Amino acid sequence: MVNDKAILVGVDGSQASYKATWWAANYAKHAGLTLQIVCAYSLPSYAAVSFDSTYTSMGDDNAAHIDAQEILSKAKAIANEQGVDAQTLIVTGDPSSVFVELSRNYNLIVIGNRGKGGLAERLLGTTSSSLPAYAYCPIIVVPYTDDDGKTMHLNNNITSVAVGIDASEWGLKALQIAADLAADRGAELDVIDAVAGLQGVSDEDGVYDSYMEDLESDIAPIRKAHPDLKITKTIVPESAVSALTKASYDHDIVVVGSRGKGGFTGLLVGSTSQGLIQHAAGPVYVVPRKYVEAEKSRSDGTLEGVSGVEKVSVETAGSEQAEAIESSIDPEHKG
């Protein structure tokens, strides 16, 4: 069995990763799950710029390990401020590969986005663009700033969920996950079917009715499983990128399915002008194709297949330091 009692959040010392930690801690608290915080590094990528942007000698694993512990100390303090006692892990290896392998052992991984400069950009810049397409478990990507570089406020609870749906197996899995999440949180669910080909089509043609009938058919099992769940269904005559990016502004989380190398790949991990992840105003919950296909064959949560994993106990940074970080990562910090 996979470790379904814990969620994993990746940190690298960037403000984006600390914001992801803050959000993940709140998610874990509301979901009744434990939180594990992992810092992954490989010496070749660490050599030129260390976590605090100072020079580090090639191959200085001791210095890298000390910096990783300091990063985990701050992240653990942030989790503690949210009432969550997190476990901390250090993993040596290429971060992108490490997180893909870790995804075989968890039901959920949280990462930050828009980390700028130095190692932060190399780690989570790469990870957030590749992990959602190749992971074996769902990935939540938490934004740090908007398109203009302004730090964004995120809610610490989920009251509204949007899901982008299509007829694929992973699209329907995304619908199921979104419905379960909304029901567990007492939130509202907005099911969005984006059909760019409907631009300019009149309601009088009956085309919308046909799409709505298909959408209702997809939702029927959800209504049966969650009879009290408030569901809104919408057919949107525009691209999925546009429709779901807009939805991210008035929903606490957007859930989407990923086909891996096709379909939603451009939506999730495309260029700056196309990617939902790059423009979303809130967390994006990605349900990868590999997760759906390999759900019954993943490892048992013992981190098998992942080398260089070290569970470490770190001193928790002071409350004042944690509060200072939280104030810097959210303009409407409320503790």
Rank of each mutant, 00 (worst) to 15 (best):
D209F: 12
G301F: 00
Y55N: 03
S57P: 07
A40F: 00
G59V: 01
K296N: 06
G263P: 03
G308A: 02
V207Y: 15
G10S: 07
A25D: 04
I37H: 10
L175G: 01
S327M: 14
S210D: 15
S297Y: 13
A194N: 08
A280N: 04
A194C: 08
A220Q: 06
D52L: 12
L198I: 01
D148W: 00
K246D: 06
I111Y: 05
E310T: 00
V38L: 02
V163C: 02
D166V: 01
A16C: 03
Q87Y: 06
P331D: 04
D61S: 13
T316I: 07
K76R: 14
V49M: 14
E293M: 05
S307G: 06
G318V: 13
S297G: 04
L229E: 08
I71E: 14
A25W: 01
Y136F: 09
Y46I: 06
I177F: 09
S53M: 14
K150M: 06
S14G: 10
K173C: 04
Y46M: 15
A174I: 02
K19P: 02
Q321M: 15
A240K: 10
H333M: 14
A75F: 12
G93L: 06
G257V: 01
E304W: 02
M58F: 14
I325A: 12
D209E: 13
L172C: 04
A178T: 03
I235G: 10
M152R: 07
E101C: 03
V91S: 10
A25H: 07
T34I: 04
T302H: 10
I66D: 15
D218G: 03
S307C: 03
T234C: 11
K173N: 02
S42L: 08
I90E: 09
I90A: 12
A247W: 11
S42N: 15
T316W: 04
E332G: 05
A179D: 11
A16S: 07
K261F: 00
G13R: 01
D184T: 06
L181F: 05
S57E: 15
H65S: 10
P132A: 01
Y41H: 09
N156C: 09
A178V: 00
S53L: 11
Y27G: 09
R122L: 13
S210H: 14
A79C: 07
S299K: 06
V201K: 12
E216T: 02
D60L: 06
S271G: 11
A48D: 09
L123D: 12
G262C: 00
V254Q: 07
E204Y: 06
I277C: 08
I253D: 02
V100Q: 07
L72A: 08
Y211F: 15
G115L: 07
